[in-house]
Design a protein around this nucleic acid. Structure first.
Ligand code: MN
Ligand code: MN
Length: 429
DNA sequence: TAACCG
DNA sequence: CGGTTA
């Protein structure tokens, strides 16, 4: 029967899923504003390809590979067999089990298939097939089901396995949804973004992520970042010119386009050695929040994802433009760093993440801990079991490289992601 | 804990 | 890797 459409290629099917939610008339037209309509670029693979799926694939090895792994089966002389259709069904079942990580079941189907291929006459039942080596109870049942209904339930379901994987990937493109929540939402039965928007348990972060799923995937040209940065700097210095405001992230690494805007702030009043803890807390809290408030008031910040005393995550937008109207919403992160840790903060927030990991691993191997709060040496006390923290004074980014005995790298040389090997750490003691 | 930041 | 936020 219709054993024909053996495994639709994975790529087109992904495309289809991503496109589907486009302009689906939903009861959400009031919730979903015009720019918010869920339509998608058909899964970009562009340079850096740093979108949700890819982005998080630093952990996951990326779900694909099903396309290639799928057809290495020992298709013998199926063509000649009077039971060709049955064999094809068994082959597909074998492939499905392999894709499910069930190598023993895969083998069982392959073995059964081989003996059926060798069988000279048409099989009329599963029972008849069971006389052959490698065909047991379970497989006989599948054959019966196929002969009676023209299909096997398990195979029909496997199609929806693929669709489930696509949905999980789609949901993971929403900021605030990771692998765990994506799976749980799919398990709950959500089938589209419009659907998911109804989930009452969505966090505020996830709602923002859903609202801007398309805009957040848009690359930001460097000159737009420059204008956004200018607004932040002006607003901040209007509050207090003693703020230091610097853009970090990929912008500081010289990228022509970025995914978001990362800014670190510091202020001479925010240091670790301040009179009272309560005083420090007050200053710490207000120093960042004052800036956030000003930027909210002028309409620059349109949504907030999280507001802490030292880290703000939100959404920003250039003011309405005469020529092309409303501008795209972008993610923005503000980070307040204690004044004396400014260079460690700059280093950490310039990244990239891989470069940070490398430096931190190196620091650790040499008995230090490196973070945005500085370089700290763990020293064991000569007598007890105690350890002291010796804070290394850092006057520049270069100081950190020096202490760790690494060659200095300018920001634009710190792009380690996607670099194949890099003999940087090489061997460690 | 999950997700996020570099 | 080492950190913040909810
Ligand atoms: Mn960034
Ligand atoms: Mn960021």
């Amino acid at each position: 029967m219709s054993t024909t459409h053996l495994l639709p290629a994975v790529l087109p099917s992904l495309k289809a899923t991503f496109k589907r939610p486009l302009l689906l008339r939903s009861p959400f037209s009031n919730v979903l504003t015009k720019q918010t309509r869920f339509n998608f670029q058909p899964t970009r693979s562009a340079t850096g390809g740093a979108q949700k799926i890819v982005k998080k694939s630093s952990k996951l090895p990326q779900e694909k590979t099903q396309t290639q792994s799928v057809n290495k089966s020992p298709s013998v002389q199926i063509k000649e067999s009077p039971n060709r259709d049955i064999c094809e069904v068994l082959e597909r079942l074998a492939i499905q089990e392999r894709n499910n990580g069930q190598p023993f079941k895969e083998r069982a189907y392959q073995k059964a298939m081989r003996s059926i291929v060798a069988y000279p006459t048409r099989l009329n039942s599963g029972k008849e097939a069971q006389t052959l080596p490698g065909v047991g109870d379970k497989i006989a049942k599948k054959i019966d089901q196929f002969l009676e209904t023209g299909s096997v339930e398990q195979l029909l379901l496997s199609k929806s396995n693929q669709e489930e994987a696509d949905l999980i990937n789609l949901f993971q493109r929403i900021s605030g949804i990771g692998p765990v929540k994506a799976k749980s939402f799919v398990d709950k039965g959500y089938k589209s973004l419009e659907d998911l928007a109804k989930e009452p348990q969505l966090t505020h972060h996830q709602r923002i992520g859903l609202k801007y799923i398309k805009e957040f995937e848009e690359k930001i040209p460097r000159d737009e970042l420059e204008r956004l940065l200018d607004i932040v700097k002006k607003a901040t210095h209007e509050i207090d010119p003693r703020y230091i405001v610097e853009a970090c992230g990929s912008f500081r690494r010289g990228a022509n386009v970025s995914n978001d805007l990362d800014i670190i702030l510091t202020h001479p009043d925010f240091t670790e050695v301040m009179e009272s803890a309560t005083d420090r807390k007050k200053v710490k809290t207000s120093l960042l929040m004052q800036v956030v408030q000003a930027l909210e008031n002028c309409g620059f910040l349109t949504d907030s994802i999280s507001k802490g005393s030292v880290k703000y995550m939100g959404v920003c937008q250039l003011p309405k433009n005469k020529t092309d109207g409303l501008c795209t919403h972008h993610r923005i992160d503000l980070r307040l760093i204690p004044h004396q840790n400014y260079y460690a903060g700059l280093l950490a927030w310039t990244g990239d993440d891989e470069h940070n990991r490398i430096m931190r691993l190196r620091a650790k191997a040499r008995g230090y801990t490196l973070s945005e709060y500085g370089l700290v040496r763990k020293i064991k006390a000569e007598i007890g079991e105690d350890t002291y923290d010796e804070k290394i004074h850092i006057q520049s980014e270069e100081d950190v490289f020096k202490v760790l005995d690494m060659p200095y790298k300018k920001p634009h040389e710190r792009n380690m992601r996607g670099v194949v090997k890099k003999k940087y750490l090489m061997h460690e003691e």
